[in-house]
């Protein structure tokens, strides 16, 4: 881990393009991804305790999308919106998409991002802490999770990602894969 990470920002052109797309495909993909993670990582949702029924706005501030996640183990839900304004949420966690991905993949420390103001939290702080700690413990790899959505082509897709993602990581500085830690 870089001790003083510079957080890459999502390209403005890309954000402008995403803003022109309809929400329905993103909504469908987000729903399938959340259901998949709930099925594959039940411990993540169990670790949330009473906070699992709260709605947390995950707000990548350099993109035109917001994900309103209710990680209820019985009925996990996610809604994709254009912005947090006008939406109902209990807590909000906001920062560049690369910071949020870095948290999921164990590349960044949440408190350090908070100290440096790269990450903003609002509302129910307990719910944010619970989600952050549960995700950190789950050691998710979003590439694996996305590949597993594709059923019969999961293995070749995961293999292609193993080759491509390190190259994209090096080019963009975004943590796209789980940090596993090296033995001493």
């Amino acid at each position: 881990m870089n001790s003083e990470p510079a957080i890459p920002i999502f390209p403005r052109l890309g954000a402008a393009l995403v803003a022109r797309l309809p929400l329905a495909p993103a909504q469908l993909a987000a729903e399938r991804l959340v259901s998949q993670i709930a099925a594959r990582h039940p411990d993540l949702f169990a670790r949330l305790g009473d906070h699992a029924r709260k709605t947390i706005a995950i707000d990548p501030t350099d993109t035109p999308l917001v994900f309103l996640l209710t990680p209820d183990p019985d009925l996990p839900r996610v809604r994709v919106a254009r912005a947090v304004a006008g939406e109902r949420w209990d807590a909000r966690i906001a920062g560049p998409l690369a910071a949020l991905l870095g948290l999921v993949h164990g590349a960044f420390d949440g408190d350090a991002l908070f100290f440096s103001r790269d990450l903003v939290i609002e509302g129910d702080t307990g719910a944010v802490l619970a989600l952050r700690n549960a995700i950190d413990n789950a050691e998710l790899d979003m590439g694996h999770e996305i590949a597993s959505l594709f059923g019969p082509v999961e293995r070749p897709l995961a293999g292609a990602m193993r080759i491509a993602l390190p190259l994209v990581e090096r080019a963009t500085g975004v943590a796209l894969m789980r940090r596993a830690g090296e033995p001493t």
Binding site: L103, G106, F108, G110, D111, A112, R132, N137, R179, G181
Partner: peptide, 16 residues
């Protein structure tokens, strides 16, 4: 103990 595995990994490796 309230910090992430990224903190743990970086600090422990450095102090080891």
């Amino acid at each position: 103990r309230q910090r992430s595995r990224a903190y743990t990994e970086a600090v422990v490796r450095s102090f080891r």
